[in-house]
Nucleic acid binder design. Structure first.
Length: 301
DNA sequence: AACCACTCCAACCGCAACTTC
DNA sequence: AGAAGTTGCGGTTGGAGTGGT
C-alpha cells in the first residue's frame, strides 16, 4: 500500500522500555483494557508507536506470562507442533497459554533447532520430523471461512488450547513480569500522587487472584492459575458454563472460537491425546537429550 | 583486567490480513 | 469496490550478559 511505517514518525522512541513506561502502559491498560492500540500512545503520552505498545504488552507485561526455562513437556509440545504446523508460532503459542509466540520462537531458534539438528544427525529421520505438509494447517495460509477444513482444524486447536492442562500454576522458580511491574507500581505509588491503581490482585509467580473486587475491570477480575480452590482454573476448560471474561481481551480468542466453545469440545484427536501425554513429551525430551539416538516417539498420523 | 566470541531475548521491521469508511 | 487505517504475525537484529582465554 505504500504507507510509511508508523514507527518512522519523528519523536517516536525506540529501544528498551523503561520501568516508568511500563508503569504508564500497565496503568492505562488496567483502566481501559487492551486493544485500540492506536489510542494508547495518544492517551498516555508515551512516545512509542502503537505497535510497540502492543508488543510490549503481549510479550512482556500481559498477565499470566510464564518466564524462565521451558519444561521438557513444553519442549515436546513445541517440537511436535512445529513439525506439524511449521513456524506458526502464534498457533503453537495457543497450546501454551503462558508462553508468548515470541518466547516460543526465540526458544526454538536458540535451543530446540540445535537440539533437533543434533538429534536428527544422530538418528537420521525421526518420526518427530514427519512431513508437516501432510497436515492441513502446515501451509501457513490464513482464511476466515469456517467451511475451510484448514480453519476448522485451527479452531479445533484453539478449543484444545482452551482446555489445555498446561494452564496449571507453574512453580515459583521464575520471576513473574507482572510481579515486577506490581512492585514497580507500588514503588511508584510511594513517590507519586495521584497514583495509578495498584495491581493488588496479582500474586507473585502465578496470578493467584483473590475474589474480584472490581468486576468491571477485567484485569482485576479474572480468576486463573490458582491451582487451588473452586476456580481450579480453568479458563481453558471448554466445559465450563461461563467463559472467562478476560479470554477475548487477554487471550485473543475471537468470535469463531466462542462459537466452537458453545458447540462443545471437538472430539479428542490423537494429537491432543499425545500432546497431553506426559510420557510422550518425556520421550521427546529423551530424544533431544541425545541419549542414544533411538527413535521412540510415536508417529501420530 | 582486558579482550573476544558466543548466547539469548527484547524489540524492531516488513508484510499480510483484517476492519472501517 | 476499493482506499485507508489498524492489527497480528513471523523473520531478523542489536545489545546486554556470560564465559573462555
Amino acid at each position: 500500500m505504500g504507507r510509511p511505517p508508523c514507527c518512522d514518525k519523528e519523536g517516536i522512541k525506540k529501544g528498551p522500555w523503561t520501568p516508568e513506561e511500563d508503569i504508564i502502559l500497565v496503568s492505562y491498560i488496567q483502566e481501559h483494557g487492551p486493544g485500540n492500540w492506536r489510542s494508547v500512545p495518544i492517551n498516555t503520552g508515551l512516545m512509542r508507536c502503537s505497535k510497540s505498545c502492543r508488543l510490549r504488552w503481549t510479550n512482556y507485561l500481559r498477565p499470566g506470562i510464564k518466564r524462565g526455562n521451558f519444561t521438557p513437556h513444553e519442549e515436546g509440545i513445541i517440537v511436535h507442533l512445529q513439525s506439524l504446523l511449521g513456524n506458526r508460532w502464534a498457533a503453537i503459542a495457543s497450546y501454551l497459554p503462558q508462553r508468548t509466540d515470541n518466547d516460543i520462537k526465540n526458544y526454538w531458534n536458540t535451543h530446540l533447532k540445535k537440539k533437533l539438528a543434533n538429534a536428527n544427525s544422530n538418528s537420521n529421520r525421526h518420526p518427530i520430523f514427519a512431513d508437516a505438509a501432510t497436515f492441513p494447517s502446515a501451509t501457513g495460509s490464513h482464511t476466515t471461512s469456517s467451511s475451510n477444513p484448514e480453519v476448522t482444524y485451527t479452531h479445533q486447536m484453539q478449543a484444545i488450547a482452551r482446555r489445555s492442562p498446561f494452564a496449571d500454576c507453574p512453580s515459583s522458580s521464575y520471576a513473574s513480569s507482572m510481579d515486577n511491574i506490581s512492585k514497580l507500581l507500588n514503588d511508584f505509588m510511594k513517590t507519586t500522587s495521584p497514583s495509578p491503581p495498584p495491581l493488588e490482585h496479582y500474586d507473585a509467580g502465578c496470578y493467584d487472584v483473590k475474589p474480584a473486587v472490581d468486576v468491571s475491570n477485567p484485569l482485576l477480575s479474572f480468576d486463573r492459575m490458582s491451582g487451588t480452590g473452586a476456580v481450579e482454573l480453568d479458563c481453558f476448560d471448554v466445559h465450563q458454563q461461563q467463559q472467562p471474561a478476560f479470554m477475548d481481551q487477554y487471550g485473543g480468542y475471537g468470535d469463531d472460537s466462542k462459537q466452537l466453545m458453545n458447540q462443545g469440545p471437538p472430539p479428542l484427536s490423537s494429537i491432543e491425546k499425545w500432546l497431553f501425554d506426559e510420557a510422550a513429551a518425556e520421550q521427546v525430551a529423551d530424544l533431544m537429550d541425545l541419549s542414544d539416538g533411538c527413535c521412540s516417539v510415536p508417529m501420530m498420523f
